[in-house]
Amino acid sequence: MGRENSTSGGDFILVGFSEQPWLEKILFVFILIFYLLTVMGNGTIILVSHLDSQLHTPMYFFLAHLSFIDLTHVTCISPQMLFNLAGSNKSITFVGCVVQLLITLGLGGTECILLAMMAYDRYVAVCQPLHYFTLMPPQLCWILASISWVVGFSNSLIHTPITMTFPRCGHRRINHFYCETPPVLQLACVDTTSYRKEITVLSSVFLVFPLSLILASYGRIAHSVLRMKTPGGRQKAFGTCGSHLTVVSVFYSTVIYMYMAPKPKLSQDVTQFVALLYNLIPSVMNPVIYTLRNRDVKEAIRKLVMGKEKKEDADFS
């Protein structure tokens, strides 16, 4: 208990895994490695998408946005987690908690919608290949991406102030490793049942509506692929859509498990560890999935590395 009390008046205490100090040391190394891999992987995707002119297409435009979302999400929570795991101070300021809640909630909604926009892009690429660049001009790509960001953060800007203004009667111990809506609401000393129901309904809409668009897009894609007569055409279509479909599967399976599916009664540590994996694994996997399955990205990375090597050789000569 004494390890958690180093906090000032307006701060919160992130309980996290503080009751198991031996586990904190392991988690510090684990989270640090995953954070560095996330920064390196998603930063590389953003960099090559910007620098390589061959990747200036709608697919990589949306992919760069997805990488930025993953990078921002992990950066929003990981440094605070590492700070709390490294010492006895488990506090987070009120402003820091608001920022974490606002950003993570906004990014979650943005990613749901962005994945649907990416599915539409893949539908146009496979089903309307001859008109792809006509149907997906840069202006439309910016509009679709902007809709994702505006809708995601509009929801967050509404719910974050409501969540943070419930009376807490002096309760400051957040039974989690970062500020998220359910554990923050547990601090409220008033009945929040109706508000929780509203959040559940809204979360379902954010999940079901984009997922329906994704399934509809891939239904049309599957229909078109099955009508292709050449194996090469089918293989190209699967290569075009495989990475995105894998990312969608990872994202929605983890989200549905965390927030929608009924779970058995587990210990708080197990529940938090599952939440930790949910926040770290997809952000690391997404660039790996796109890199391993995509020759264009691998070629862009190779050219970027070779270009640096040539420049270094020129400097030495």
Rank of each mutant, 00 (worst) to 15 (best):
L47S: 12
P167M: 04
I33Y: 05
S212F: 14
S204I: 07
R173K: 07
V190W: 04
H223L: 14
R168W: 00
I46H: 01
L130I: 08
L144S: 02
F133K: 07
V284L: 12
T246K: 06
C127H: 10
C112M: 12
K229N: 13
T193I: 00
S146V: 01
V205M: 15
L51Y: 11
D70K: 04
M118Q: 15
V305K: 14
G232C: 05
K25S: 02
P79Q: 05
S49V: 01
S249A: 15
D11I: 02
I174A: 07
Y259G: 00
L276P: 02
C169T: 01
V39D: 08
L245I: 11
I77G: 09
T72A: 15
P129F: 09
C189P: 08
N155G: 12
V29R: 03
L51Q: 14
T72Y: 12
T246F: 11
N279P: 00
G106D: 13
A300P: 13
I301P: 06
P137V: 01
L292N: 06
M1Y: 09
L32H: 02
F177S: 08
D52G: 07
L102M: 15
G106I: 12
V247T: 09
A300C: 12
A275C: 01
V151M: 10
L157I: 02
I221C: 13
L144M: 11
M81V: 11
M81T: 06
L102C: 13
A116E: 06
M306Q: 15
G10M: 06
G152A: 08
P287F: 10
T165I: 01
L144Q: 05
S53Y: 11
G152C: 09
E4K: 07
H244L: 15
Q139N: 08
E111P: 01
V15R: 12
H56V: 03
P262Q: 08
T192C: 00
F83I: 12
P231N: 13
R227S: 14
T230V: 15
N294H: 00
V48A: 07
G87P: 11
I281C: 03
P264V: 13
T110Q: 14
A145D: 04
N175C: 00
Y259I: 00
R302A: 13
M164G: 05
K197S: 03
S154R: 05
T193Y: 00
V270F: 12
K197C: 00
L245F: 15
V124L: 12
R295S: 14
V151N: 03
L63N: 06
H56G: 02
T291R: 03
S67C: 06
G152R: 11
P287A: 10
S8E: 10
S78L: 09
L82C: 04
S148I: 09
K90G: 03
S148Q: 10
A275N: 04
I33W: 04
L47A: 06
E180L: 12
P58W: 09
L51W: 11
A314T: 07
N294P: 00
E198R: 10
A64Y: 01
V98Y: 14
I162D: 04
G109C: 04
A300E: 13
Q186R: 15
A188M: 03
A314F: 11
P79W: 05
L135V: 08
